[in-house]
Computed example of a mutant assay.
Amino acid sequence: MDHRLRLAPVVQVDLHTVRGLAQGAVADAEPPADPEWLVARLGEELLPVWADEWLVLERERWDQVRLHALESLAQRLRRDGEYLAALQTALTATEIDPIRETAHRILIEIHIAEGNTACAVKRYKAYQRLLRSELAVEPSPLMTRLVQDLTTAQSDVGRA
């Protein structure tokens, strides 16, 4: 006789549902039916009030899944011209991990796609200040080039 406790097959675990949708977003499958719902779920921490040590690694795994999904979804929304949804999605990723460069880079790319050069430069400078104060490092050359291209283009226009 098996004496283990198990969930009934009819019970759905929300983490499993959201993880499946997140993996679909990363795989560049069909866009989710309700992107706002998915972004809201991906913005949630795993068992935030529990202090159990076994959760440390599980939280890290969940954070990586949701960061990759949010970034992929934000890029897709940007490509589709849905800039507000893309910005909100990328901002959710920066809330999860404020020093993660890819999320900030996507925000800059969204501002550029919208034609908001000043917002893109402002986002870069805020990220640069954060890295300098927290880690005493600079943004990557890839990110710096992204903004240098903007400021160089603006300087060229000003000289014309």
Rank of each mutant, 00 (worst) to 15 (best):
M1P: 05
D2N: 14
D2R: 11
H3W: 11
P9C: 00
P9G: 04
P9Q: 04
V10Y: 06
Q12L: 03
V13K: 00
H16C: 00
T17E: 12
V18G: 00
R19N: 01
G20S: 12
G20R: 13
L21S: 11
G24S: 14
G24H: 10
A25K: 02
V26W: 12
V26D: 10
A27H: 10
D28K: 13
A29W: 06
A29M: 11
E30P: 01
E30R: 13
P31M: 14
A33D: 14
A33R: 14
D34R: 12
P35D: 09
E36F: 00
L38T: 02
V39Y: 02
A40R: 12
L42G: 02
E45F: 00
E45P: 00
L47W: 09
W50N: 15
D52Y: 11
D52C: 07
L55S: 07
L55F: 06
L55I: 08
V56L: 13
L57E: 14
L57S: 11
E58L: 13
R59A: 05
E60R: 14
E60K: 11
E60F: 02
E60Y: 06
D63A: 12
D63N: 14
Q64Y: 02
R66S: 03
R66C: 02
R66T: 08
L67N: 03
L67F: 06
H68Y: 08
H68M: 07
A69H: 03
L70M: 02
E71G: 08
E71R: 08
E71Y: 00
E71A: 07
Q75W: 02
Q75G: 10
R76N: 04
L77W: 03
R78M: 09
R79C: 05
D80K: 06
Y83S: 05
L84F: 02
A85H: 04
A86T: 03
A86W: 02
A86I: 01
L87I: 09
L87V: 06
Q88D: 11
T89V: 04
T89Q: 03
A90N: 07
A90V: 05
T94P: 01
E95A: 10
I96M: 08
I96H: 01
P98F: 05
R100W: 15
T102H: 10
A103M: 05
L107N: 09
I108H: 01
I110D: 05
I110T: 08
I110P: 01
I110F: 08
H111E: 14
A113D: 10
N116W: 06
A118C: 04
A120S: 10
V121Y: 12
Y124T: 07
K125Q: 15
A126H: 12
R129P: 00
R129W: 08
R129L: 09
L131W: 09
R132F: 04
S133C: 03
S133P: 01
E134Q: 13
A136L: 03
E138W: 04
E138M: 11
P139G: 12
L142F: 10
L142T: 15
T144M: 13
T144N: 13
R145I: 00
R145E: 14
R145N: 13
R145L: 11
V147Y: 04
V147Q: 07
V147N: 05
Q148N: 13
D149Q: 13
T151D: 11
T152S: 07
T152Q: 13
A153H: 06
Q154M: 13
Q154D: 14
